[in-house]
């Protein structure tokens, strides 16, 4: 018990004092603060703004009328890099520098090493996300002169929690790579490759596969509505194999209470579109599969890390 605690304390100290963390910290704060600043300006100049009107604090993180990308998109794109940066060399660097065999020969369980490293990364991520979210909210309170409603506060809290899970998943992927790949430069590159794959390439692949299996005529209006729905459903399911899609969809529902479905909205059936926002618990029901999907992916990643690491020789160095 005290062993894993010692590991967490050391790793956390390493993270917080590292140049790497300083860079991540600056980027996240820059993006968050810029978004909040332009969001506040937009709300002040146009108080009746449709998205900002009923949920001003949510709009600080989602508005696209500012000069910077919304904070939720920033986390979606940049979150994996944060997680990878905290994890990609956690194991292989210790092996290469000969500290792993010394660490593993202490009276600790072998899994304490990866658990400790993961938990230290998790705390770092939580500190980063919670602090910037609090600061954005604070800027809103000061700039707008109002406090967030309970509904807004809950949605922001849920968004923070999902962001932490999402970034931790990429931390877990980073740790797994640091176990599977010997050289830190290679594991960094492998991490970036996975990030590009799950952020971009999977979208092309999903489109290709979908159009092969459920071909559609051009223009789109020539198709049977059933085909269109089937095509869309398949494409969506395929892209949901990416944690990034799961996160994007979950945050859109959470931060835009008017979004009531994640399927295709058939434009010629207006009775399906209701402009009124839905309640938080309805939003949560809608994204519950996404959250469990992210957590399941994290558990799978961690299990593979665990199995690989437990069976590894703790040789003084790779060669």
């Amino acid at each position: 018990m005290s062993g894993i605690f010692a590991i967490i304390v050391k790793e956390l100290g390493d993270h917080l004092s590292s140049k790497r963390f300083t860079i991540l910290f600056l980027l996240v704060y820059l993006a968050g603060l810029a978004g909040a600043y332009f969001g506040v300006q937009a709300l002040i100049s146009d108080p009746a703004n449709s998205t900002g009107f009923s949920f001003p604090f949510l709009s600080l993180m989602t508005s696209i009328d500012g000069a910077s990308p919304p904070f939720i998109s920033f986390i979606s794109i940049f979150g994996p890099i944060i997680g990878l940066a905290l994890g990609f060399d956690s194991i292989n660097r210790e092996i290469a520098s000969g500290t792993m065999s010394r660490l593993a020969s202490q009276p600790i369980h072998r899994d304490d090493i990866i658990n400790g490293k993961f938990l230290a990364g998790l705390v770092t991520i939580a500190l980063l996300i919670m602090s910037i979210v609090l600061i954005i909210t604070g800027m809103g309170i000061l700039g707008l002169g109002i406090v967030p409603s309970l509904e807004e506060a809950s949605r922001i809290l849920a968004f923070s929690a999902i962001s932490i899970v999402y970034i931790s998943l990429w931390l877990g992927i980073g740790i797994l790579l640091s176990i599977l790949v010997r050289r830190t430069a290679t594991s960094a590159l492998a991490g970036i490759a996975l990030w590009i794959f799950f952020s971009f390439i999977i979208l092309f692949i999903a489109g290709l596969v979908t159009n092969l299996l459920v071909p559609m005529k051009v223009p789109i209006t020539d198709n049977d509505p059933e085909i269109v729905t089937a095509n869309d459903a398949l494409r969506r399911s395929l892209t949901r194999l990416s944690p990034n899609t799961l996160f994007d969809e979950a945050t859109i529902v959470l931060m835009n209470p008017t979004v009531r479905t994640l399927g295709l909205v058939i434009v010629d059936r207006p009775e399906l579109i209701i402009p009124n926002p839905i309640a938080l618990d309805q939003s949560l029901t809608l994204i519950w599969p996404h959250v469990t999907g992210l957590i399941a992916a994290l558990i799978i990643t961690f299990t593979i890390s665990y199995l690989k690491f437990m069976r590894q020789d703790m040789r003084p160095s790779w060669e």
Binding site: S97, G98, R102, S105, P316, S317
Partner: peptide, 29 residues
């Protein structure tokens, strides 16, 4: 491992920590 000490060949330490800090970490573990 609670009662046995091990000196690996090519022993390694955390380069950005002092000798004192490295040993203190072992003591904590």
């Amino acid at each position: 491992r609670r009662l046995a000490g091990y000196l690996p060949e090519n022993v390694g330490f955390y380069d950005d920590m002092t000798a004192y800090q490295n040993l203190l970490y072992t003591a904590r573990l």
